[in-house]
């Protein structure tokens, strides 16, 4: 891991309304396979991606949210949610389908600064 780069994926968009969340997740899985230091950040409407209980049958679209639970099988365990974004949407940690680390804005900003590559879609 010594020559691994720090990759952060910044998710600021809600699922289903656009494809960005799904296709972002596809990159995350590939990046993990390259043995890089991967973290995911959820800000703004991106926190909605992690909401439990997504039922997509009625919109005839694949529910891809279970894939967030599979991330740990790929050793992707650094999932960060911005506290202010979560609270602004009436959500708590209990609403998420995976374990996350909740960070304040300041902590999130500091973490972004440590990254080598920041990708957002």
């Amino acid at each position: 891991m010594s020559d691994a780069k720090k990759f952060m994926f910044v998710n600021r968009k809600a699922p289903y309304g656009t494809i960005y969340a799904l296709e972002s997740l596809e990159v995350v899985l590939i990046t993990a396979a390259f043995d890089q230091d991967v973290s995911l950040a959820f800000l703004d409407d991106g926190v909605y991606q992690l909401k439990k209980g997504q039922q997509t049958k009625g919109i005839e679209t694949k529910n891809f949210s279970p894939a967030y639970r599979a991330l740990e099988d790929y050793d992707v365990e650094k999932l960060y949610v911005e506290k202010e974004a979560m609270e602004a949407r009436g959500l708590t940690e209990e609403d998420f389908l995976v374990d996350v680390t909740v960070l304040s804005r300041a902590e999130m900003g500091a973490l972004m600064d440590e990254q080598d590559v920041v990708l957002s879609f």
Partner: peptide
């Protein structure tokens, strides 16, 4: 494949 994007992230000085 998407690996080409990851490779660009690894090999390039800036993405």
């Amino acid at each position: 494949g998407l690996g080409q994007l990851v490779e660009a992230g690894i090999k390039c000085d800036r993405l």
